[in-house]
Design a protein around this nucleic acid. Structure first.
Lengths: 241, 241
DNA sequence: CGGTCGCTTGACTAAGGTCAAACGAGGTGG
DNA sequence: CCACCTCGTTTGACCTTAGTCAAGCGACCG
């Protein structure tokens, strides 16, 4: 795993993008930054492995990370894509369990991390950090619960639409009705995000590309008409009750 | 909403069952208890409503509470059943959003609660409480993520089996291979938990009752053979990849 | 005793998963 | 520079799961 330290003042700036340190005085941010380690990773590098003991908490500075969970039966689900500025593998530090998923870079990335001991100490020392973490995980929880409900009640088409919309929001690169998803996204990724098969996802996306709803700029996707996609996402009810 | 205060020393004892106050000195537990309110509610009472402003954090002392989310299309999903000793409507206090779901009693219940201001103040004053909350929500998140993966990859039969197993674990009333689910559970509840329809759930449960895997003691269910149910839950793979 | 609510059951259907095969682009080595 | 190999994708044909529609039953409550 290739790794390097940034200069302190660079770190301070880089760290600021994290919600983690919101509301903290600059000197504390500096302290948080001083404890951080930065790894520069190629695409496809494993950051941590499902079932492994938790040693560090992570965040993405540049690039993207795939968080994938594998069931005991071997079935895979893509829990989330991590965009720059987001943390991952953090909450599990507080539950004492092992990593519940695999994390691997989806493209060349810079990943910052803290040791478990340092991170726990920071949390105890600065209640504001704890509050920030609760807020972050609260939003994650709300997000996952929404996906759970969608998964339970909506059609494959709607779920795929929702997955794309989520990715667009997450990446923020929106202009007008269009929004780019700034990370490599394979059909299989979309399928696992939406809880469907590679084949169904491929058919659906191909159809949408045909109607100009989507465009592809090689490994990335561009949503050309977000409002139409949103209409599909809430679509006409397919189930009753 | 019928409501009453318990005597202080009773509250202290009752509050102790909550993971919230784990590791706290007795006098702090007493303080937490002194700020609590207890409501005695009949079955079917609304505790809070999806979309309403967050004012209080809750826990169940006796009884059971259904947490149900309704999508914009009207589709309903049962996010969780709350058993005695568990908290609900708590995390959202820290995210500043509205309640993301409805909460209503599934049977006559005693519900304890704290005001938002009190609860936040407690959290700031005692980092250990914040840590406990992160631990709780972390486990919730892990649980929901597991359900999400199951929802995405498993058959209706497996998901229903998982839902029942989860409820048995949650209620702890296990003896040998059998485990009672100590709360009223309608077919519809099981269906919404497992992300399937009333009809499919009914068929499945009826079949399992026929083979002696399950038994029904009026509004509750008893799992007669947990190991067989577990075998169904992990069942032979229905999907590839 | 009647009404409501929850449950059961059967017949039908369609969404979407499975199986199979082939294509295209990108990278590598001869 | 081309041949080849691999990985991701596309597409078609088929079939199963489970959702939909439609009744009817039984139990509990007022």
């Amino acid at each position: 795993m290739s790794e390097q330290k940034m200069l302190p003042h660079d770190m301070g700036k880089a760290i600021c993008v994290l919600g983690l340190v919101k509301g903290l005085p600059p000197e504390v941010v500096g302290h948080v930054a001083s404890l951080a380690r930065v790894d520069v990773l190629p695409a496809g590098a494993r950051v941590f492995t499902q079932g492994a003991e938790v040693r560090r908490a992570y965040a993405v500075l540049v690039g993207a990370v795939r968080i994938r969970q594998i069931g005991s039966d071997g079935a895979q689900a893509l829990m989330r894509m991590i965009a720059p500025g987001e943390m991952f593998g953090t909450i599990v530090l507080f539950t004492g369990e092992d990593y519940p998923a695999d994390a691997e870079t989806a493209m060349p990335s810079h990943v910052v991390s803290w040791s478990k001991a340092d991170f726990l100490a920071l949390t105890m020392a600065h209640p504001q950090i704890a509050i920030n973490i609760i807020g972050m995980v609260g939003q994650r929880l709300a997000n996952v619960q929404n996906r759970l409900r969608e998964m339970a009640t909506q059609s494959a088409e709607q779920r795929i639409a929702h997955a794309l919309l989520m990715l667009v929001e997450q990446n923020g690169a929106v202009e007008g009705k269009a929004g780019a998803i700034c990370m490599p996204l394979r059909r299989r990724d979309v399928a696992e995000l939406a809880g469907t098969t590679l084949h169904t996802a491929s058919r659906m996306l191909a159809a949408w590309e045909k109607t100009g709803l989507l465009a592809r700029s090689r490994p990335m996707l561009v949503v050309r008409d977000a409002s139409r996609l949103r209409r599909i996402a809430v679509g006409e009810p397919h189930r009753k009750t």
